[in-house]
Amino acid sequence: MRFKYIAAATLTAGAFSTTAAFAECGEVSITEMDWASAAVVTSVASFLMEQGYGCDVTVVPTTTVPAMASVAETGQPDILTELWTSYTEVYDELIAEGKLTEMSKVLSDGGVEAWWVPAYVVEEHPELATLEGIRANPELVGGLFHDCVTGWGCDVTNFNNLKAAGLLDAGMERFKHGSGETLAAALAAAYEAREPWFGYYWAPTSVLGKYPMVQVEFPPYDAEIHTCNGLEDCATPGLSAYPKANVVTAATTVFAEREPAVAEFLTKMSFTNAQMGAVLAAQESDSLSNEEAAVLFLTTYPEVWSAWLNDEAKAKLAALIK
């Protein structure tokens, strides 16, 4: 019996001493959201963590809502990246509780949500880049507004904006898509056939990278109007552009304390829309895989990502930074 106690004590002491002796990074789990820009972010982050910091990275394919639920309940995965915070109320709660720490705005320009019309339509009729132009001639943009997916929240906002712009009265029909895939497919199908299209979409995405679209002009963002527009029973819908969507990398506080070096790297990791847009456009036109798109970013912008690393990591990756 005494022998068992001694054995247990030795093992525990051994375990503690092992972790203390390791200055290298341990096991890290990072989310990979199911859209192209998120896959690029995760690929780049995993590569730098593995090669620069010696981490053992596990990529967890997931999407926003299940990832937030998992972190809230189990504290896994360690790093959540490309979180569009306006669509997850639970994010602010987790930050307030101290379970999550926000690392950085991974898309530094923020996500752009807007209404779009194809470039070839605006070339022929420049007034269709304005709401008044569309209201005067809804058939020129196809007479149908492609609304975002039921349950995403933007469908309510778009509906109220449509009401406020008088487009519903002018005869514009509204079609709520069942999934993001059909929305993207409808845009692509119309563009390939050179047909008019009018609807909601967001950047940076592969679709907008591949098919040049023009944003419809909106009055600037107004917090009060936008909040009311987000409610189904808003009595006074008004016109307001979408705010720049906050797109962040967040990590569990536990992880940030365990791996301070990696956490510091995450606070600096940030892509501009120009950089991400260029990578996504190249990915579309050359049929690159997500890994190859990440490689393209790493080889095209060495000055950008080397600034995120600490000296040790920079030394390890010196061959790539040149």
């Binding site: 590569f47 890994e291 080889t299 061959a319 790539l320």
Partner: peptide
Amino acid sequence: APLSMADLLASTGA
């Protein structure tokens, strides 16, 4: 052909 991850790792000497 676009640069693959294997090529990139090779160039880092990993």
